[in-house]
Structure formats: structure tokens, C-alpha cells
Design a protein around this nucleic acid. Structure first.
Lengths: 216, 216
DNA sequence: TAGATTGTTAATCGATTAACAATC
DNA sequence: TAGATTGTTAATCGATTAACAATC
């Protein structure tokens, strides 16, 4: 029954969700695949193909109800569930993650934060007291934890992941360059590689410069 | 002469670069497409196809020189150039970006930081004094600036981008949900949508749970 | 020379786009 | 009913994988 929707489609779902949220906030009641494609810089064909991976949410001759479609995509993404989450690392990056994201609207709840550096332990972030990383085992045994956010340097992540895996945690939001999925095969890992993104920008700037120089 | 290498290939280049950097640090001198594919969780065919978009860097019967290949990919990405960069927004996210990334190794140099909130103006980040955002125009006119990093809320970004675009800035590393590329068509934008990444993780956790339940 | 491994062409696979009958 | 727009099938396009001759 696992339908096997392609990763390309799945990666577009948050985009649909974002734009539909905006449209609803703007008071738009209904939208055609054509109009939605224009907003998303996509094509009407792709919009209809994508949505029909999950069901027929539209109505012939009418289009899609913005409110309903947004709710359906929210359900598909699973944003109506709440995944108990811990954050490992309360440095600059961990702090930004903790304070910047609306976890509750994204299907998660941040319940605890752990940090090795004693100088940061005890501080408050988003109403949560930062705990020493030695407390991880005790905490995870006492509290149900589904997901871990990893905001620490690569060399620290290898060891931490081993501990978290041993405790049964199988989903990771990973900001480091340690390759979790290569080590463990029954986990879900979403990587955020900021430096890869910046290098891609670098390449594209150079391409832009080249095309400008060719024009001259 | 613009070759038009596909975006999929370009997005893999930073990965090659990262793994080759590791291999070189480990003292590996040469590597075959087969071995490199194993390290990268890719295929030998894909490795050779990808690299041959840019040139024949290997040697039949031998493989690739790790050192040379890393250097070549660095050049392709343009990491040997230095793009003058400013950061707009010195909140938690801006602070993490400023302190977390090795800009110099990624083809960029962070030269100035601007912030609206007077409480943050004057603070030091990465040896740079945070300036008031009213100084942007003066600064960009006096100093050559190529790239802007946008680490502020969506509603502030629209206005800031207008100002930066008017000043001639054409490349953006954008952490907000404001769609720059839809508004301006001669810009290069690399978006980092953290909440999209988290929603994708949410979807995949649910899929994992489903497949586990099916087994029972 | 023989073995290994590339560069490159051909085959396959999957994703996107186009078309249109179904239907609101 | 006529017009609009979906859901879905078919056609196209591009990316990945396989194969192999070239060659170090």
C-alpha cells in the first residue's frame, strides 16, 4: 500500500502548503490549477499530476477550494500530528533553530535541549532550560522522543548519533556533515547542508557573470 | 558557450567536493569512479557522467587523483574567487549564519552586517561591527558588494530587496519565504527554506511509521 | 603485455508536459 | 445547456544506468 510517491513531488508539497496558506490569508476561496501554477512558478499539468498522487481534491469546472486543499496537504504532510523532538547543541546554530521555527505548525514539538558546553547549560531557550548532554539517556528513557535535531560539529555527531540510535530514535534533522543514513539503514534523515547551498550559489553567480560578459 | 549543465549535477558538486576533501585529509591519493560512488552512495556511471560534463579529469586504468579532482571541482564551483558579501539581519538566525560558516573556504567574504533593531546595532559578530540598516545605501556605494544574505522576516525582505536591487546587487542567499526570483528575473537566488525541510522530514517519518505498522 | 578503469555512446527508466474525455 | 476545469492517459523529454571500445 506504500504508494511510493517520488521525492520530487514530496519536496514540492511544503511549497504548495506555503502558497495555499498565503492565498487563504489573502481571502482567496478557490483556485484553478492554472492560477496555482502561476503563483508557484510551475505548470498546470504538474499541479494536477502532483495532487492526484494523493487524491482528487478538485472539482471539474470549478478548481480547488483553497481552504480544503491546504488542509488536505497538511494532512498528507502529517502536520496535524505532533512529533516529540529534542535538540542537541545550543550554540549559535542550535539557538537559531530553537528560536526561529514554529515547530508546532510544522508537526513537531521541541521538548528538550542538550548541550555539552557547561557555559551554555542552564540557559533558557524558547522557554526550555538547556540540559547537560549527559542527561540524554535518562531523559529519553523517561520521555517519549521521536526525533532529534543535530546542531553540532561533525566529530561530535558520530558519537551522539550512536547514543540516540541505541535509545531507539530513528528520525533526525541533521545540520552536520556526518552521513547518518550511510551508517544506519532504518532511519529517516533530512540533511540541511548550508555550505552546500552557499557553494551552489557561488557556481551560479559565476555562470551569471559569464553570461553577462558574453553579451558585451 | 554556456553549456547548460543540469541543476541536478550542479547540486551534486558540493557533495563531491566535501567527500574529496575528506579523502584527501585521510591521505587517499587516488580513487576510481567505483570507489568514489561507494563513498557518495552514488553509482560509478553517474560519477563519470557528472565529471565529464566539465572535462576528462581521470586517467584510464588508474582512476582520479583525489588532490587534482578536488582542486578542479573547487575551480568549477568558483571557490577560488572571493565574492564580497553583506548580511542583512543580526537576530538569532543572522548570528548563526555569521558565526557558523567558513565563508572564505566557500568563495565568499562577509564584509558587513546590517540590522534594523537598535538593540543589536554596534554588537560584534565574527569581528564585524553590526551597522544600522539605514547605512546600507552608503556602504554599498562606497564598497563593492556582490551578494546579500537575507536573514530577516518575510515582510521586511520585500522592502530590503528592493533597495538592494536598486543598488545593483544581483545575487542573494535567502532564508526568508519572500520569492525574489519571481519578482526580479536577472538575479541569482539560492533559497534555504528550513521549514520546508522540516515538513519533508515530517512526511517521511509518517511514511516510516506506516511501513513499520504494515510489517506487524 | 595484461589488467584496470576511464570517456562516451546507447538503452532504460522516470518525470514532466500535452492532450482530451469526463463532468461539474 | 455551455463553459470551465479537472482527472487521467499518452507523448515527450531528460536523467540515470548500462555497456564497451579506447587507452593508460
Amino acid at each position: 500500500m506504500t504508494k511510493g510517491v517520488s521525492i520530487q513531488v514530496i519536496k514540492r508539497l511544503p511549497r504548495y502548503y506555503r502558497f495555499l496558506t498565503e492565498l487563504e490569508a489573502n481571502g482567496t476561496d478557490r483556485i484553478s490549477s492554472n492560477k496555482l501554477a502561476a503563483v508557484m512558478s510551475s505548470t498546470a499539468s504538474q499541479v494536477r499530476q502532483d495532487l492526484n498522487c494523493f487524491g482528487g481534491f478538485g472539482q471539474q469546472g470549478y478548481g480547488y477550494s483553497v481552504h480544503n486543499l491546504r488542509a488536505e496537504i497538511g494532512k498528507i504532510l502529517g502536520l496535524d500530528r505532533i512529533h516529540s523532538t529534542i535538540l542537541i547543541g545550543a550554540g549559535n546554530l542550535g539557538k537559531a533553530i530553537a528560536t526561529h521555527l514554529n515547530f508546532e505548525q510544522l508537526g513537531f514539538k521541541l521538548n528538550a535541549i542538550f548541550e555539552k558546553d557547561p557555559k551554555l547549560v542552564g540557559k533558557m531557550l524558547r522557554g526550555i532550560t538547556v540540559l547537560p548532554d549527559n542527561d540524554i539517556e535518562r531523559y529519553v528513557k523517561d520521555n517519549y522522543v521521536e526525533t532529534a535535531i543535530l546542531a553540532l560539529p561533525k566529530d561530535a555527531v558520530e558519537n551522539i548519533t550512536q547514543r540516540l540510535y541505541a535509545l531507539g530514535i530513528r528520525s533526525y534533522w541533521n545540520f552536520s556533515h556526518y552521513d547518518i543514513a550511510k551508517k544506519y539503514d532504518d532511519v529517516v534523515v533530512e540533511n540541511v547542508h548550508l555550505s552546500d547551498s552557499l557553494m551552489t550559489l557561488c557556481y551560479r553567480i559565476n555562470e551569471l557573470d559569464k553570461s553577462i560578459n558574453e553579451e558585451e
